[in-house]
Amino acid sequence: MSTKLTNLKLKIWRQAGPDDAGRFETYEIPEISDEASFLEMLDILNERLIEQGDEAIVFDHDCREGICGTCSLMINGQAHGPQRASATCQLHMRTFNSGDEIVIEPWRARAFPIIKDLMVDRAAFDRIVESGGFISAPTGGAPDANLTPIPKPVADAAMDAAACIGCGACVAACPNGAASLFTSAKLSHLNRLPQGQAERFRRTEAMVDTMDDYFGSCTNHGECQAACPKEISIDMIALMNSDYRKAKFKNRKNLSRI
């Protein structure tokens, strides 16, 4: 049955735009049901702010089911808050206690500039995918879907990797702001499948090089895996590194053939 939490104090990052210095503002939540989701609490606060003439707090969200990867937020210093294996939108107030002070900040990473308040720009992820995160298969002309059997463990492993929602928690949690977990998840999805073999090494080199243009480098802290709402494993990074080494070698050999 629902109970109420009382006297929450929220310290929320407000920043008018990319060039504003930004600061924390404190908001009181006198009472909230423990059934409310964390983002519903922000909705209620925003409605209050608007009705009293203040500007609403900007935050990113959409599906509210943990699948679109739009929501973000560092909550008390943790990407997506204290609940493991879930996104901010899946967090409910019953995880907190009356009287708690909750600090809410945007993702902080060099590659994710702040747009306003709690919203950041994650376009660098799209650049990585555009550089090679696909299998070139133009529409039409695909052979029958059952032509190439794919062993179930391979398909399952590809799916484990493909589950990434592109939220950026891995980058936000990483002390170096690296995007190795994101990039390696996409590579492990595509590089494991028979359809992905033709472009495997070209893809790996292109994606890793693009990643390096925007993001910091990975020093195996493992914070990314702990923050990932889909529990994507850092084993993927090992696979990426090994493919990258092979790719550098093979692609150089290919170059010498031209």
């Binding site: 696909f134 299998i135 298969a137 529409t139 039409g140 695909a142 052979p143 029958d144 879907a145 059952n146 059997p149 794919i150 062993p151 179930k152 398909a155 399952d156 590809a158 799916m159 493909a162 999805h189 595509l190 499948l193 359809q195 992905g196």
Partner: peptide, 20 residues
Amino acid sequence: DIIDQMVAQGVPFAREYGGL
């Protein structure tokens, strides 16, 4: 045709042990 197209692109649809 949709299923053929999506598989060619690498969509990891569920499979049986035989790989189909």
